[in-house]
């Protein structure tokens, strides 16, 4: 079957909202990487005291759905408090666009991830909040939750494809995946896992076993 975009995705790709940069953002973040194929930067202007997002801009190095999901999520976040904006899920963003093809669902995850990271950046800089970003099993799990199995458009944790997460004494992260070795999405999932877990500076090697 052909992979198709909804009319709303096309509309947001043709005329994206909130494109650009903010000169002095109160919070900003970049997620993804050119190596992975998509990269998204989000810039926030947040009113101190009320914590309302007054303005929001984005820049995307990515495909049509990447641009469209960034466009819709910045629309959704504008005018909301940071606590409300943090609650926006990738499923909601995709629904708001009239759906996304399963293979493109990761774009919606990236958009949510970039928004939440930008808010976190604000919270750190302006609210003095501290976050546990250590290489704990819990934080590894949070990263894996952002990885979508492109065949069905759902994350690999929800699909129970991850059978084991471990960190050994040499700081190697060990992931056991229950997948067919011939699965065509396996190379993509492995790449995504490496990309996401490489943000833990302490990580030595990322070992992925397919069981």
């Amino acid at each position: 079957m052909a992979i198709k975009y909804s009319e709303k995705v096309i509309e947001h790709f043709k005329n994206p909202h909130n494109i650009g940069e903010l000169e002095q953002p109160s919070g900003a973040a970049t997620e993804g990487s050119p190596a992975c194929g998509d990269q998204l930067s989000i810039y926030l202007d947040i009113e101190e005291g009320t914590n309302v997002i007054k303005d929001i801009k984005f820049q995307s190095y990515g495909c049509a759905s990447n641009i469209a999901t960034a466009s819709i999520i910045t629309d959704m976040a504008k005018g909301k408090t940071i606590d409300q904006a943090k609650e926006i899920s990738w499923k909601q963003a995709a629904e708001e666009l009239g759906g996304l093809p399963p293979v493109k669902m990761h774009c919606s995850v990236l958009a949510v991830d970039a928004l939440r990271s930008a808010i976190k950046d604000y919270e750190k800089k302006h609210l003095g909040k501290e976050f546990d970003e250590s290489m704990s099993k819990e934080n590894v799990k949070k990263e894996l939750q952002k990885i979508i199995y492109g065949k069905v458009g759902v994350d690999i944790l929800t699909l129970k494809l991850v059978k084991y997460i471990g960190i050994d004494n040499d700081n190697n992260i060990i992931i056991d995946l229950e997948m067919d070795k011939g699965d065509k999405f396996l190379p993509d999932i492995k790449e995504e896992i490496e990309e996401h877990l490489s943000k833990f500076d302490r990580a030595n090697e990322i070992k992925i076993n397919v069981v």
Partner: peptide
């Protein structure tokens, strides 16, 4: 992005091109 399985073109990868 345009590949069904999100894989970079194998010819480009096998002739020393960067992902970008």
């Amino acid at each position: 992005c345009s590949a069904k399985e999100l894989k970079a073109d194998y010819i480009m990868m096998n002739t020393g091109r960067t992902f970008e």
